[in-house]
Amino acid sequence: MTVSANRATALPQRAGLGLKPEHYETILVTRPDVGFFEVHAENYMGAGGPPHRYLEAVADLYPLSLHGVGLSIGASRDLDKEHLKRLRVLIDRYRPQSFSEHLAWSTHDTGFLNDLLPLPYTAETLARVIDHVDETQQWLGRQMLLENPSTYLLFSESTIDEVDFLAAIANRTGCGLLLDVNNVMVSAVNHRLDPIAYIDRFPVELVGEIHLAGYDETVDYVGDRLLIDAHGSAVRTDVVELYRHTLSRSGPLPTLIEWDNDVPDFATLNAEAVRADAVLTAAAVARGATRAA
């Protein structure tokens, strides 16, 4: 496997899959040729039992990406030190090749809200998120990747473009970025933006991992298309095309297929990885041809 030295990840430039309990046995018995597996950190914060037993076995065989969904980095309130400790324990135990979290918030005074909620992009919120990323990287003793969100609404107080906001965080904290191409499509359609232009402005040299997923579609109050980041289906064709365009800028990058709801059988899920691997291979070949010319 080839890994660029300057990338914010040690994952291979291959397609990876979310590790689901219903696939544990199949993976360990058939040992499919998958680039890496990714887990939601919070699902492995129990004290013991089969989840840890299976994760240890899978992590012995494949590179591992640890993806947090509960740190609430985009919250106004302080980060939860207990949660940072839980993450540190997991990282020390499993030594994942990548750790990532979201530009979003999920915890407030009322408790954990179990969703990735949007925040306005202002000088004040930028300073807060920079502090939180700094603190996270210090606690975990490693670089993290920060993921661009999918959003359904905007804030009138926002003064900073999302790509500039993410780039500023990465520049100030040294974190890498996780580019969720499906999120780009969802947010671009929802906010009447050009997804290609978003990708073309994105600092792809800071990207350590790509996410792909399937969206659902509905309409908003005035009848405009509204895409929902559903993670319950195959990656849509327009997202695959946007992914192809992304790789033409970035070169091959570790790419995760996210399919978290209505999880299909392993063969169906793996077919998504095979499709992404083909796009990765084509991107690597094109890059080689460009270099040779």
Binding site: Y152, S156, D224, L226
Partner: peptide, 16 residues
């Protein structure tokens, strides 16, 4: 302060 690209306060989007 929540809005859309069309400058609408959209209850359906918040409902998501």
């Amino acid at each position: 302060g929540i809005t859309t690209a069309r400058g609408v306060t959209d209850p359906l989007r918040f409902a998501v």
